[in-house]
Structure formats: C-alpha cells, structure tokens
Nucleic acid binder design. Structure first.
Length: 227
DNA sequence: GACCAGGCACATC
DNA sequence: GATGTGCATGGT
C-alpha cells in the first residue's frame, strides 16, 4: 500500500519534471516577477487579480509617474486619486481599497518595512496576509514567492487549467490541493517554484490562449507519458 | 458586441 | 460546503 503511494508519487514527480523541462526548453528563463522592487511585485499581484497583465502595466506606469509607488507613497495618497491612477487595471475602486488595506497592515504590523515583514516565519506571514481583506491565496503566495523569496508554489488559473486539461487533478481540486500536488512532488526550491509558475503562465499566454495550437505546444506529447 | 483576463469577498441556500 | 454574483477595464 505504502509502496503504491511511492510509485504514484514518483510518477507525479517525473511528470512535473518532464513538464518543467519541456517548458524551460521552449521558453527559457523567465526572470520573474516583472517589477523593479518587492513593493511593486505586491502591487502588481493585487492589480492583476482577474485582469490581463497589459492593463496592469499601464496602471503601474501611472503610479511611477506619480512618484507614489512606495509604501509611504501609498500611505499618503488619497484613495480616490489612487483609484484614478489604477483605473486601467479594472475593479479600480475595490483594488484601491485593497492596496490601502495592505499598506495599512504593513505600517501597523511592520512599521511600513517590507524587509521587516519578510523576516517573519513563512507560515505565520502567509496567515497574516490572508487575513487582509483583498488578499487571497494566490496574491499571498505571489507576494511570498516573488517579493519575499519564500519557497511556496503559486497556483493560478493557468496552473489549474494545465493540470485539469491533462487529467492530473480532479475537477473539484481546490487551491491547496493543487499547491500540494507541486510542493509534495518537487524539491523545495525558490528558484524552481519561481521559474515553474512563470513558465506555466507563459504557456497559457503564448500558446493556449491566443488560439489553442497543439502542434506547437511544448507539452503536446504529455498524454503519452501520463498513463 | 460578446467574450476573456495571472481573484476575492460576500450573500444565499 | 457548494454555488452565484458584483466588481470594470482593455484586447481580440
């Protein structure tokens, strides 16, 4: 029984390694997250919720031009002005509120310092982030991995789609079960988690979304090894 | 003009 | 616990 699990687990491990290798070969290092500072990563993670990244880029550009893309800048800026600057990212009233919630937390708990915040134990900090209104599991994990360099796997719509399309997870799989699928079957490595998630997003954006084109998909032979 | 995009909170049953 | 709904812009 236990050996059955081991066989299954090593199979999963091999599939994940296979997927990673193919994606890395196809797309190369992604060098994520596309941002200049950890704070910009967090802001981008909130702004990209259910929104195309191109819409977020415009918002980030506005924030930089305004010179307010810092914890202190966000603390001081009027929320209606903030909403106006991030308008292109959609849901701008909600997102302005979320950004204010986050910096409110950052100052109340960590004196406005991300360095201090990221000195906290991973699981404790993750829980704290999840308690902030507007930060759910994906935003929390993006923050932890891409801004804080913590070894945690980010699950998003692309990840879910990839696994369910290839029948690697059930229809009903929730966030943490998908996250565990990766983290239980991969070495716990920040660089690997960073690169893998970025590659999955690249696959979704470049190959699957524009027009599903299996002929050029780097994973087109996946079915053959998933048996 | 419909449909989609790197979610999340909240209401209702 | 599952399911539905509001939030909103810009690209295809």
């Amino acid at each position: 029984m236990e050996s059955d699990h081991k066989i299954r687990d090593s199979h999963k491990e091999n599939i994940l390694k296979w997927i990673y290798d193919r994606l890395y070969l196809a797309f190369g290092p992604r060098e994520w997250w596309p941002a200049d500072t950890p704070f910009e990563v967090i802001v981008g993670a909130i702004l990209t919720q259910n929104t195309a990244w191109s819409n977020v880029e415009r918002a980030i550009r506005n924030l930089k031009e305004e010179g307010c893309l810092t914890p202190r800048g966000f603390r001081l800026i009027d929320i209606s002005r903030l909403a106006q600057l991030i308008r292109s990212s959609g849901y701008y009233n909600q997102k302005a509120q979320k950004l204010k919630e986050f910096v409110g937390f950052l100052f109340a708990r960590y004196k406005g310092s991300l360095d201090l915040m990221f000195k906290t134990d991973l699981l404790i900090l993750r829980q704290e982030l999840l308690e902030i209104k507007g930060i759910g599991p994906e935003t929390a994990d993006s923050t932890l991995l891409y801004a804080g360099n913590f070894p945690i796997f980010v699950v998003d719509a692309y990840t879910r789609r990839l696994l369910s399309r290839h029948n690697l997870i059930g229809e009903q799989a929730n966030y943490s079960s998908i996250q565990n699928y990766f983290m239980d079957n991969l070495p716990c490595d920040v660089k690997l988690f960073n690169e893998f998630h970025a590659l999955i997003v690249q696959l979704g954006k470049e190959i699957c979304r524009p027009k599903p084109n299996c002929a050029i998909c780097p994973l087109r032979k996946l079915e053959e090894i998933v048996s």
